[in-house]
Structure formats: C-alpha cells, structure tokens
Deep mutational scan, measured.
Amino acid sequence: MAAGGDHGSPDSYRSPLASRYASPEMCFVFSDRYKFRTWRQLWLWLAEAEQTLGLPITDEQIQEMKSNLENIDFKMAAEEEKRLRHDVMAHVHTFGHCCPKAAGIIHLGATSCYVGDNTDLIILRNALDLLLPKLARVISRLADFAKERASLPTLGFTHFQPAQLTTVGKRCCLWIQDLCMDLQNLKRVRDDLRFRGVKGTTGTQASFLQLFEGDDHKVEQLDKMVTEKAGFKRAFIITGQTYTRKVDIEVLSVLASLGASVHKICTDIRLLANLKEMEEPFEKQQIGSSAMPYKRNPMRSERCCSLARHLMTLVMDPLQTASVQWFERTLDDSANRRICLAEAFLTADTILNTLQNISEGLVVYPKVIERRIRQELPFMATENIIMAMVKAGGSRQDCHEKIRVLSQQAASVVKQEGGDNDLIERIQVDAYFSPIHSQLDHLLDPSSFTGRASQQVQRFLEEEVYPLLKPYESVMKVKAELCL
C-alpha cells in the first residue's frame, strides 16, 4: 500500500493539533497551500530580480507567473513527485505547466533550498508574528487579574506546605514575570531571523556568478533584492546548502521555554482548584465526569500541561538535527523538520489560546482563602504575639514557653481530632496574655502579614508589564474561544 493518505478522510490519521486544537490561522501558515504558494512567490521574486539585473526574462513571463501564483494543481504535483521522487522539481514542473512561456526560467540558477529553506524562514517569521500578540493578550488578562487582587491576602506555599502570606495578585505576578520573559525572547528570536537568500547549491553562489558572467556586484544585488522582497532586513552571508540548523534550535528553545512557563502556571491553577481557592472557567453544560456528576475538573489547565510537556520535548529534535548536518548538509534534517517545526508552533498556539481562555474567566473564592488563612495564621502570628507581650512588660522566655504549650495543644486538636485551630481562643482565655487581649485582632490582621506584596504588584505592572504590552494595544480586544 502506498504511503500517505487522504487526510480529510475519517479513515486516515490526522494530527489532533490540526484537527482538534490549533487555530485556523496557525494551521494555514503550515498548510501545503501556504507552503507551495510561497515557493511560487519566491520563484517570481527571483525572476523579477534577475530581470532587473539584466537576464533575458520578459515582462510577459513575469506576468504569467504572477497570474498563476494561486493556480496550484495539487493532484498534478503529487503525481509528479511520485514520478520524480523530488518535491521541488515536482512543483517546478507543475508551475511550468500553467506558465508555459515562463517554464524555462522558473528556478533559474537556484537549488531546492532556495524555495525550501527560504519558505521555512518566512513561515517561522509569520508563525512567530501570530504567537506574539496571543502571548501579549494572556499577559494582559493576567495583569488585569493581578491588579484587581493585588491586596487580597492568601496563604503562600513553599514545598506545598503553608508559608508566609502573600497576595493573590502577587502570586499571579510570578506567572506574568515568566511570560514577559517569554514574550521578550519570542520577539528577540523573531527579529534575529535572517533570510537564507540566493546562495546556490553549497552556499557559494557559483551558479549565479556564472549567470551574471562573473559580476560579483550583481550577485550581491540579486541576494539583497530577493531578501528585501521577502520582507527581511538581512540575509546570511555564510550558508551551506541550507541555512544553519542552529536557527531551528533557537526558535524551538524559546517555544519550549514558553511551554515550561505555561505548565507551571496551569499546575498552580490545578492545585488551587483542589484547594477550592480558584477555578478555571466551567461552562453551564460542561460535564466533569461521566460517573461523578459533582466533579469540576480543571480540564483546560490539564490540557495545557499535557501539550506543554510535548512542546518542551520537541527542542531535542533540532538539537540532534543540527549535530548531524555533515559538511554542507545531509538530508537527516528533512523529514524531522517537516514534523517538529509545525508541531512546535501548533502546540504553542494551542496552549496560548487555551491559557487566554482560562485567564479571561478565572474565578476566585475569597471566603475559602480566608478560612485557610484562619487555619494557619495563628501559628504564624506567634512571633508577633511574643513581641507584643514583651512590649507590655512580659518575659520573652516565659511567653515563648506559654505559646509553645498552647500551640501544641491547638495542633493536637487540628491533627488528632480534625478540629479547627483554636490557638487564639486559648490565648484569649489565658490570664497571662490579658495585657494584649485587646491587640489580638490587630495582630491577626492578614494584611499585616503580606509585606509589600501589593506595592510590588503595582510597581511591576507599571514599570515592566504595561510598557512591554504597549506595541500590542491594537490587538488586545480579541477574545479566545474554545470549541473543545
């Protein structure tokens, strides 16, 4: 049975990233139509530049190519590739079939990587351009969430054990800070992308030097003109047959890092959902379990974690691919890159769409948070109580021993009897502590235990987050809708 299948058929496997999760716009960027249309555009740009620099290419040939950029006979191309065992030459023939007058000058002087690699770089750039505003929107939604809850005390956790208090907004800023680093890295790697350009079979530009009869300047002009037509500021000066596969490492490393950030955020949300302090959106008709109707599973956060793990592992592909590119190139890269580049971007696209949807509907339960604080705060307040007693004339050592005994009794009630923490009640009825009984409410005010959390939130948002989001103001209103 021949390899390949009808990918629109229910009898043929289709990647869930495309069929179930990723956005239509990201799927289109990695589609065959987008790819092969870009090949034709690159052939047109090459012909236009070659004509401008004096090669015998007519206006009629150029116009014929322009008129057929979208006229792609995919069936013919597939048949040609089956016959020739070469995808680029299959599309040269297919393009030439609908451009008979231009057929002889299509791909003039070029090698397969002229269309293959340059198209990949265009796709990487455009895919990054799709991700950047999506990530900015996630940051914006979380920034709104953090600002609104900047002063809401909550129990902090280290080692997932109760620690000092923080605020809900401050905790959210930990998430935002990681995503801001990801946004900066995505922008950097996007701006650092260079075009492969017009380089020939081993990167020496020998074929173009021959076409222009040894004119170095025209060869350099050709490279520059096509690079500018493709919208790049610069091209690699040095290439082998391909652009260095280190570029793929750079791009997928940034995406993998984004995956790590999203995994951490969504894990926190899942843990908070278990504590009943916070939940992701839950639709009115949504079913959490087929057997347990009360369940409210954090399905979206779980999906993000599941896909983020996949995204983090994909960076190993370009690392290994770059390491086995012998001399000017081997074909070890080809099949692998067809999979890992598309999957990385479709996965990143999915987790950003999902995280935006989550961040637009996060639900906080202040009463649950308050109750958990009441359970733990008495123990945390013991040092403040000791200091207040010393100020009232008591002995630190005597007070410490009193607190120690009462704390152990209260802990026994919590752990052995399943009761509430009654340390404060014990202190309130103990005559030894009568000098500070009137101060206990103040000493137990949760806001006095959150330090500068709310001020940190305000400063972080104003100095770091809002300036970073400013270039994306025009796209901030787009909502994230999930079908599944």
Rank of each mutant, 00 (worst) to 15 (best):
64 E>T: 12
214 G>R: 09
260 A>Q: 07
238 I>K: 02
178 D>W: 13
375 Q>E: 06
348 A>S: 08
255 L>Q: 11
169 G>L: 05
143 A>G: 09
228 E>S: 09
357 N>P: 03
386 I>N: 12
292 M>Q: 00
223 D>R: 01
262 V>P: 02
35 K>M: 07
131 L>T: 09
51 Q>E: 03
66 K>V: 02
215 D>G: 15
159 H>V: 01
470 K>A: 13
232 F>A: 03
112 S>W: 00
411 A>S: 09
153 P>S: 08
11 D>C: 15
325 Q>S: 12
34 Y>C: 08
425 E>A: 12
271 L>W: 02
483 C>Q: 13
130 L>H: 01
157 F>R: 09
412 S>E: 13
340 C>Y: 15
190 R>S: 13
154 T>D: 13
194 R>T: 05
169 G>E: 06
398 D>Y: 08
332 D>N: 02
404 R>G: 08
41 Q>A: 12
151 S>G: 09
341 L>N: 02
155 L>R: 02
441 D>V: 12
290 S>A: 05
333 D>Y: 00
347 T>F: 06
246 K>Q: 04
366 P>N: 06
294 Y>I: 01
360 E>F: 07
76 M>V: 11
127 A>C: 07
48 E>M: 08
132 L>R: 13
293 P>Y: 07
360 E>W: 01
135 L>D: 02
87 D>G: 05
43 W>P: 03
292 M>H: 03
197 G>V: 01
329 R>D: 00
308 A>I: 02
368 V>C: 04
4 G>D: 10
228 E>F: 15
416 Q>V: 11
4 G>W: 15
153 P>H: 05
332 D>I: 01
168 V>G: 02
431 A>S: 06
368 V>R: 11
167 T>H: 15
185 N>V: 15
209 L>I: 14
29 V>C: 15
459 R>E: 12
51 Q>V: 05
471 P>D: 14
315 V>Q: 05
248 D>E: 14
320 Q>V: 10
153 P>A: 12
31 S>W: 01
405 V>N: 15
107 H>N: 02
341 L>G: 14
205 Q>R: 00
59 D>C: 15
395 S>M: 11
353 N>F: 01
383 E>M: 06
383 E>T: 07
183 L>I: 13
314 L>M: 12
211 L>Q: 15
192 D>A: 12
274 N>A: 12
210 Q>I: 15
271 L>C: 11
5 G>S: 13
273 A>S: 12
54 G>Q: 03
19 S>G: 10
96 G>Y: 02
296 R>V: 07
347 T>N: 14
457 V>G: 05
154 T>Y: 05
32 D>S: 12
213 E>C: 10
90 A>S: 07
327 F>Y: 13
286 Q>T: 01
418 G>S: 02
299 M>W: 02
449 F>K: 13
14 R>L: 13
61 Q>N: 00
299 M>E: 04
203 G>P: 00
98 C>T: 03
156 G>I: 00
277 E>P: 00
356 Q>P: 05
271 L>Y: 00
190 R>E: 09
17 L>T: 07
387 M>K: 02
482 L>I: 14
128 L>A: 13
138 V>K: 05
203 G>C: 00
398 D>I: 02
363 V>F: 08
12 S>P: 01
472 Y>L: 13
193 L>R: 04
462 E>S: 12
223 D>E: 13
248 D>Q: 05
104 G>D: 05
145 F>I: 04
121 L>Y: 07
50 E>I: 01
35 K>Y: 10
348 A>R: 00
295 K>L: 02
44 L>R: 06
56 P>I: 07
114 Y>L: 00
290 S>W: 02
297 N>W: 04
68 N>Y: 08
229 K>I: 00
195 F>D: 02
68 N>E: 10
421 N>Q: 06
31 S>E: 05
237 I>Q: 13
280 E>N: 00
183 L>V: 10
268 D>K: 01
435 P>F: 03
257 S>D: 13
239 T>M: 05
363 V>L: 13
408 Q>E: 14
395 S>L: 07
151 S>A: 09
317 D>H: 07
144 D>W: 11
41 Q>S: 12
308 A>C: 12
149 R>S: 07
334 S>K: 03
452 R>A: 13
297 N>C: 00
3 A>R: 11
381 A>V: 10
381 A>L: 15
188 R>M: 09
310 H>N: 08
236 F>D: 04
392 A>K: 07
350 T>S: 11
165 L>C: 04
417 E>R: 08
439 Q>D: 15
472 Y>T: 04
157 F>D: 00
41 Q>P: 04
66 K>N: 15
423 L>K: 05
172 C>E: 02
220 E>A: 09
178 D>L: 03
120 D>K: 15
176 I>S: 05
42 L>V: 09
415 K>M: 10
